[in-house]
Design a protein around this nucleic acid. Structure first.
Lengths: 338, 338
DNA sequence: TTTTTTTATGTAATCTTTTGCTGTTTTTGG
DNA sequence: CCAAAAACAGCAAAAGATTACATAAAAAAA
């Protein structure tokens, strides 16, 4: 039998308005009354119900986050950042796992309609321009991470640049035959990373050799799997003569790729992407994305917009950072912890 | 200007009761009326508001999860499991990060008072018996993971057994001087794992040598850090003669321990605990806990109790599994992917 | 002491839905 | 064709808060 504001009001011999004022620190309440209400509430275990408050105030103090994948480190970092910011501001976080089956658009739209939250964060969700546009009609604060749309606040990392950095690192070492172990060509980050690779080659006047670009057959998770990395690297190792170096679309794929190299007893310098925790332990040279910062920034702009909805949308682009460990160096395998 | 049930009712020329019935598939509504309402609602972008529904129905279709640490794999797996089960049943998930600063008890109690959810899942949160008991007064469905209390449904893994398995593995190899790299002695899982170690020694009639039990100085996160693993292993390597083998309280700590061994150029067989993703890549022998299953089970029993609050509390204990990779074998370091 | 101002509290409308009850239609069966 | 049953839809009372407005009491100013 949960207590309501009426129970407390009755017990304290005051009206519900007074009880409400006490809990909201609003208006004037005599100290003695206030104390009585608070004591009673504590004894009876009362606190205003969120759902009733949400309805009456038209404000829920809750934000909702959409993510397509929960089991990766990229998401974890962002989640941590969002949580940290949110709990400092006394907001609750609702996580919705957008399932691969079923239309992502529909799932998101459904939640927006229901008005669960005061604001929404989209993580790694990619929509067409017209789809993004249609979210505008809900007229609700939205921040997007890892994609962008001019109508909403967005935070992303420059994928072209990241891949450019990696490729360029090899070019400066004098390599010209640089393989590219890539993923699903339909995925936006994949396209961008491919572009960075091409750009670096072009800048160095190295002709693009499409036979050096390989992907695995496993296309689950847009090809971001260990298995597909393994498959792709096998194809790369069949190229004759062997490429001098290789850039790779993700750390996870790189793990598979390393395995393939080990099996063949060959090793070519490799740089991957993401800088997951594993990367450090395996000694993977990789492109780091400031995920925690991205999460923080996205949450900040969301909260700011909740306060002041007229702010004009901001677009933040972070620069990736190349982290050199052992995997990019010659004969470097099997030296973890460097 | 979000639409309400009144707008739709007016537009369709019916009462709000009818609109409500349409959306709830409850009571009788003529097909033509139903279609009209649905079409109009779709056009006008209407859907019942969760907060108003929650209030009217006294049911929120939402569960809340409390976690002390978000950035580890243990949590991730469980989160994934909970999400999968929940979205199948159309429940929303709310995650509350219980902060280390401030009293965990207070933070949880606060949320329970506010009645955010229909049910609550506690992950890796340890309370005294009287504290657990005091949660009972909210009379709300609760499932606890990684701890247990007789009043609530609980799912845990047998920590004593896990540590016993690991220790026993070494004993059967003929080792008698087995070191124990442990963590904060106040933490419950740590105590239990210590007990399993002692139990295995006792069973084999090996006298307990307390000088073989070491912990690091870094006690953040209850000592479950790479740093504290590194520190503790340094102490172990100072023991003369060197222990023959070592069991370790977590994979994370083991990573630090491996580093310490590498620095000294020594290697003793090691088994750790958790089976995080990294374990596989680094070749760590470790004790696996079926986290996904635990998450699933906890969610199932929670949902069952929401349906039928009178069910008597269940306590599920999973058995851990020893996974042997290379780190437990002699001269085994630096052979990843095995 | 009277008037004015400030403080303290209550009344009642509001937020958006759900749902029990009631009354009217429509359908069914004899 | 009529009575009984079933289908359909509306009214109004919840659900548990917040808050604008009004008013009574207390404090300050005159």
């Amino acid at each position: 039998m949960p207590k309501t504001i009426y129970d407390i009001a009755q017990a304290a011999g005051v009206s519900i308005a007074t009880v409400s004022r006490v809990f909201n620190n609003k208006g004037q309440v005599k100290k003695s009354t206030r104390d009585k209400v608070l004591t009673l509430a504590d004894e009876m275990g009362y606190h205003p119900q969120v759902f009733a408050q949400g309805l009456a105030r038209k404000k829920k103090n809750s934000i909702m986050m959409f993510v397509p994948i929960m089991s990766n480190h990229f998401f974890m970092e962002i989640l941590g950042a969002i949580q940290d910011k949110l709990s400092a501001k006394n907001f609750e976080l609702n996580i919705v796992h957008v399932m691969a089956n079923g239309d992502a658009f529909d799932q998101v739209e459904y939640q927006l309609k229901r008005q669960w939250a005061d604001g929404y964060i989209f993580v790694s969700l990619h929509f067409s321009n017209s789809q993004w546009k249609s979210f505008e009609r809900f007229d609700v604060p939205i921040s997007v991470i890892d994609d962008s749309y001019h109508g909403f606040d967005s935070v992303a990392v420059d994928n072209v640049e990241g891949s450019f950095l990696a490729t360029n690192y090899f070019i400066r070492k004098g390599y010209t035959r640089i393989a590219n172990l890539t993923a699903a060509p339909t995925a936006i980050p994949v396209k961008e990373r491919l572009k960075g690779y091409e750009k670096a080659l072009e800048k160095a006047s190295i002709p693009l050799d499409k036979t050096l670009i390989k992907r695995g057959d496993d296309m689950s998770r847009d090809g971001f799997t260990e298995k597909s990395g393994y498959e792709a690297m096998k194809k790369i190792l069949d190229i004759k003569p062997l490429p001098e170096a290789c850039i790779c679309a993700s750390d996870i794929k790189a793990i598979g790729a390393l395995k393939a190299m080990e099996e063949k007893g060959v090793s070519i310098p490799l740089i991957s992407y993401d800088n997951l925790t594993i990367a450090k332990y395996v000694g993977l040279s990789t492109v780091h994305q400031p995920m925690y910062e991205m999460g923080t920034r996205a949450t900040e702009s969301l909260l700011a917009r909740i306060e002041k909805p007229t702010l004009s949308p901001s677009k933040t682009i972070y620069n990736p950072e190349l982290i050199i460990r052992s995997s990019s160096e010659l004969m470097s395998l099997y030296q973890p912890f460097k």
